[in-house]
Amino acid sequence: MHPAFSVIFLTTLIGVGQGLFLALVTGQVYSLANLLQPQDSIRFYAMGSALSLMFLVAGLLASFFHLGHPERAWRSAAKWRTSWLSREIIVLPLLMLFVALYGLVHYFGLTTPLFTIQGVISVDGSLILGVLGALAAFALYFCTAMIYASIKFIEEWHSPLTLINFTLFGLSSGFMLAAAFSAWSGVDLVGFYGTWAVIFTFAAGVSRWLSLRRNHNLVHKSTLQTAIGIRHNQIEQKSQGFMGGSFNTREFFHGASAGTVRLVYGFFLLAVFVLPVLLLGASYWLASPYLPVTAFVVQYLGLMAERWYFFVEAQHPQNLYYQSMA
C-alpha cells in the first residue's frame, strides 16, 4: 500500500493525544488511591489536557488532507452501523469533548467531591469525565485499528495484533509525552510515567515483533491463478491495459526501493524501542528535562516510520493484476 502522510500523521498524533489523556487519568486515579502526590489542577491536569487536545486536533486536521472533499467530511458519520471509519469519526470528537471538559473542570477548580464511595473514594466531576474519556480513548484505539484490521484480504493487517499494536504504541508514546511534560513543567512524576512508558514500549515491542514475524511467514490466499481464474503455474503479465500508470498503480504500490524500506525498518526499530528507553534511563541520573522530551520526540519520529512501514508491509491482492508493464 502507498503510505499517505496524512494517515501517518493522523494515526500517530491521535495515538499520542489519547495516550497522554490516559496517562493524566491514570495519574489522578493513583493519587486518589494515595499512591502518588496529588498534582496541581491547573498547571498539571488542565495544561496536560490542553496538550492532549492539541495532538488530537492536529491529528484531525491531518486527516482532512486525506480527503478529496474535506468540506463533505460531516457526512462520514452516517454509516456507523457498518463502517469502522465512520465509528472513528464519531468517537474522535467525542473524546475531544471529554478531554476539553476534563481540562476545563480542572482549570476552573470544580473538583469538590460530588459523592464518596464507601466513605473512601471521593468522586468529583473530573474523575467521572476522566473515566468516560478513558473509555472513549480505548474505543478510539479500537476503531482506528479496526479500519485496517477489518479488511480481511489485506492479510498483513487482518489480525488482532493490529489492534494490540495500535493501542500499545499509542500508550507508550502518550506516557512518554506525559513523562516529558512532567519533566518540562517540573512535576515529580517523570519516574512514574517513564516507568509506564518503558513497560508499554516493551510490550509494544513484543507485539510488533510477533506481527512482523507473522507477516514475514504469511502465505497469501490469493494468487494470479485465482485472480484471473486460469490454472497454470506459469502466467506472465504482458499488458496492464495502459502505459502511464493508473490509480491502481499509484495507490496500492509504495514505490520505495528495497534499500529505503530496510533503512526505515531499522530506523523505526531503533527509534521506537531502543533510543527512548536509553534516554529515559539516562534521565534517572542526569535529571535533565531535555532527556525525556528528546525521548518522546525520538519515539514519535520512530512511530511515524513504523506507520510508514505498516503500509509498505501490506500487500493488497489487487496488485496481482499489476505485476508487469512489459
Binding site: I228, H232, Q234, I235, Q237, K238, S239, Q240, F242, Y321
Partner: peptide, 9 residues
C-alpha cells in the same frame, strides 16, 4: 481495462 497475460512456456 483489458489486460493481457501469457500462459505457459
Amino acid at each position: 481495462r483489458v489486460q493481457t497475460f501469457e500462459v505457459g512456456e
